[in-house]
Design a protein around this nucleic acid. Structure first.
Lengths: 197, 197
DNA sequence: CCACAATGTGAGCATAGAGTCACAATGAGC
DNA sequence: GCTCATTGTGACTCTATGCTCACATTGTGG
């Protein structure tokens, strides 16, 4: 029998295991049994710490939200707002590279179709991230770094668009495309466009 | 008993039914039984026209490729390359609005994880589309409409990035975001950036 | 050191969905 | 109008997976 650990620790372990499994085998490959096995426990053990698979998935979403928030934190002290955005973009690319599970979960409607509550949750995560990006952009607009005639919200969505398609291609090509390189090139073009003249 | 129709017609019907089902209920809701029911037939009838679910999904992918190719065709006679791109972008947004199944299938790794052949197929569809976009861009570069210092391939991926995140948000918010509006605003910014001065 | 709550286990249930097969109906070509 | 290949049907099997439950084990507070 495995060591007995308290619920919070197990919940964390299960959530991380789940995220890893999605990265490796896709959402389709995410079964309660596999998650348990990855943690070194037996399937039914999962139900000691979650009411069901739904609750487990919620925990995974929470994990993802934390990772995104962390990235924003990491760049929050960069004064130059364009540089701040650039670094956030690179961190984002890195997050995706290091954990393919993140985009797979966020952009797979499998997770929330037929589950309005979770759909709202995912939407909230993305909107939360976008909001923070928009704030950085607005800061750049007030201190004259970024063109004031642009809608911060639109720009923040475009910002996401710098990574997202590249991430999909990277996944599809099994790493045949360098996400970070593309993101750097794209950023160069994009920055030249929103920078105040 | 239902009317007997030949295989090509049935294959088409099943593929379209499948695409519609994905739009309505997500990939998770795509079962052979439902597809059959939507066409007004019984589950086992599907196996008269496809070897299995895999072959059905391949047919759906083919349908999607055709739709994308159609869009490129529709704008192929527009001389002004920036205008050509703008129209293609709007068609793309329209395609997504009218058939949510398209992005859901293309960007859901569920479809191809654990199936290298199909993964390659999806990659091919996107790359094919990107290639055509890149050609339009190169045309714009040679006739002096678009900045020559930009890498056409990078720009084509950015082009995709103008719609993709908006499409995801639109899906997540149940239509709470106007994809076409965002795309128009984003295009305005983007075009100002790649246009030759 | 002991009781008991929390955690881990294995066996088993229920359901959904892919696929098979023998048989029935259809309709196109002769 | 007959024949037969094609297409449609219903009953079925098989497998994967979410989940339950009775029981075993652990370790912590008193």
């Amino acid at each position: 029998m495995s060591e007995k650990l308290n619920t919070e620790i197990r919940q964390d372990q299960f959530a991380q295991a789940a995220l890893g499994l999605v990265a490796a085998h896709g959402l389709k490959g995410l079964s309660v049994a596999r998650v348990a096995h990855r943690v070194g426990l037996v399937p039914s053990a999962v139900y000691r710490h979650f009411r069901g698979k739904d609750e487990l998935l919620d925990a995974v979403l929470d994990l993802i939200r934390k990772r995104l928030t962390q990235n924003v934190q990491k760049v929050s002290d960069v004064k130059d707002s364009l540089e701040c955005l650039r670094r956030l973009l690179l961190l984002h690319a890195q997050l995706i590279r290091e954990n393919q599970g993140v985009p797979r979960i966020i952009f797979s409607e499998e997770l929330y179709s037929g589950n309005p509550r979770r759909q709202t949750a995912v939407y909230g995560i993305i909107q939360g991230y976008l909001k923070r990006v928009a704030e950085i952009i607005k800061r750049g607009q007030s201190d004259g770094q970024i063109r004031r005639d642009l809608d911060a919200s639109t720009v923040s969505i475009m910002f996401l668009g710098l990574v997202q398609p590249a991430a999909v291609l990277w996944q599809l090509s099994d790493g045949g495309i360098d996400v970070t390189k593309h993101v750097e090139r794209a950023w160069h073009i994009f920055a030249g466009c929103i920078r105040a003249k």
